[in-house]
Amino acid sequence: MTSHHTDAHRNLHSEHGALRGEHPGRAPNPVVKVQDLAWLEFRKPDLDRAEIFAHAFGFTTALRTADQLQLRGTDAGAPCVIIRRGPRSAFAGAAFLAADATDVLRLAEATGRTVERLPESLGGVAVDLTDPSGASVQVVADVHQLPALPTQSPRTYNFGHDRVRENATQRPPREPARVQRLGHVVLQSTRYLENLNWYLKNLGLIVSDFLYYPDQRERGPVMSFIRCDRGDTPSDHHTVAMTLGPSNRYVHSAYQVCDLDTLAAGGEYLLDRGYRRSWGIGRHIQGSQIFDYWRDPDGFLVEHFSDGDLFDCSLEPGWAPMSASGLAQWGPPATKDFLGVSPDRASLRELRAMITSLREDNEFDFQRLRGLLKVASS
């Protein structure tokens, strides 16, 4: 009997480039080129509960008042996350760091907005924008720089016959994986292509990788991993990832930690305290990050990551089909929770959004729905 083995990862690595006429992945003359994500903002009703999880996840409190919580990593810079007290949990938007205040002014003039001063706790100036999906986007400059904090150090490894650790044991402590910095945010939109072009034009972001639904490449991409254009200076493979879907929503955010041991031991610390792992540990394909996904007490998906790709401006976008099996090079299969198909309130909301979206004028139509269902079952 002949055994036929199918490689689930065949053609999923996206070093393959664009075909003639496909999206170039960058705007020819963007208004500005942002340098990084500055912070993310959330609304939550219980700041005490949010802070307890944040410390277990590896954040440090930078500011705490009755109505606001600012969380930081160990790197110097602005807070990673700002949580304001609100009646219900919600993602409130993202702030991007401009090169300087001149860029903030240029963006304000191009979009018909005004430049405002940020609160004293943050410092600097900002222009408030709204992307085509309705998400709040701030571009900021001259914000206060918090000093660096002590961080965990990478462990010394014996790789194969390269033995650099002798007469010494390896004992990573089971403690929080200290967050170093904010890495990226993933957003879903019913108007994916319009949203993508808005970010490329106004913020100068460039695409690292495109994904398309199986057998629908001719209709264009449905997901993009987008990085900052810092010229010859490499930046994260993606600072923002955007995907087409039946609703406009936050998907997850990711925070860098020191190394695999730190990530794994930090995960055990979270499990010991009753927190829920969504998916992990594994290594992604697009971006190559070692990942570990968790649900916070309010249901938001957050990721520890380490060892991600860094690209300069010279690399053109890769193209690959989207599939559940193509989300990781190794690790456990993507869970129902991560894929958003668990029988819970969030998936019910998404199901209702599908029905609504299919009745409206947007990019999520019946052919796209069939592609999304094929991805979830692949």
Score class of each variant (00 low, 15 high):
Asp103Cys: 07
Arg276Cys: 10
Leu200Gln: 08
Asp128Met: 08
Gly25Ile: 00
Pro147Ile: 00
Gly77Phe: 00
Ile82Arg: 08
Pro297Val: 03
Pro246Met: 15
Pro132Met: 11
Gly123Met: 01
Ala18Leu: 10
Glu363Leu: 10
Arg277Gln: 14
Thr114Asp: 11
Leu327Thr: 08
Met223Gly: 12
Ile206Lys: 06
Asp131His: 14
Val31Ala: 10
Asn197Trp: 09
Ala148Leu: 01
Tyr293Phe: 11
Ser323His: 08
Gln68Ala: 13
Asn29Tyr: 06
Ser153Pro: 00
Phe210Asn: 04
Gln289Glu: 10
Asp272His: 14
Arg359Asn: 15
Phe311His: 07
His55Phe: 02
Gln329Met: 07
Gln216Ser: 13
Leu358Val: 13
Gly183Asp: 12
Thr151Arg: 05
His284Trp: 07
Met322His: 14
Ser377Glu: 02
Gly371Gln: 13
Pro321Trp: 04
Gln145Ile: 11
Ser235Ile: 00
Asp142Tyr: 12
Ala346Trp: 11
Cys80Trp: 01
Pro333His: 12
Trp39Asp: 00
Ala50Glu: 12
Gln329Tyr: 06
Val185Glu: 03
Phe91Val: 02
Ala18Trp: 00
Val302Thr: 11
Ser208Glu: 00
Cys313Asp: 04
Phe364Gly: 14
Glu316Phe: 07
Phe42Thr: 01
Gly73Phe: 06
Pro221Tyr: 02
Thr61Tyr: 10
Phe225Gly: 03
Asn197Lys: 13
Met1Arg: 15
Ser342Glu: 06
Thr233Gln: 08
Glu41Pro: 05
Asp236Phe: 09
Leu193Gly: 12
Asn195Val: 04
Cys313Asn: 05
Leu301Trp: 02
Pro176Met: 02
Thr233Tyr: 02
Gly274Pro: 07
Gln152Cys: 01
Leu149Met: 11
Thr169Ala: 15
Val240Cys: 06
Trp319Thr: 01
Ser325His: 12
His144Trp: 01
Gln188Arg: 15
Phe59Cys: 10
Gln180His: 12
Ser323Glu: 03
Asp209Gly: 14
Gly93Asn: 04
Pro150Val: 04
His5Cys: 07
Leu203Ile: 01
Arg117Glu: 03
Asn202Cys: 05
Gln152Ser: 10
Val125Thr: 08
Leu200Arg: 13
Asp261Tyr: 14
Ala66Pro: 08
Asp209Lys: 14
Pro234Arg: 00
His304Thr: 00
Arg219Met: 11
Arg230Gly: 05
Gly93Leu: 01
Pro172Thr: 05
Asn158Asp: 10
Thr74Asn: 03
Ser357Gly: 12
Leu369Ser: 13
Phe366Glu: 13
Arg20Gln: 06
Leu107Asn: 04
Tyr255Phe: 15
Gln188Glu: 10
Ser153Val: 11
Phe42Asn: 03
Leu339Val: 04
Gln152His: 13
Ala94Ser: 11
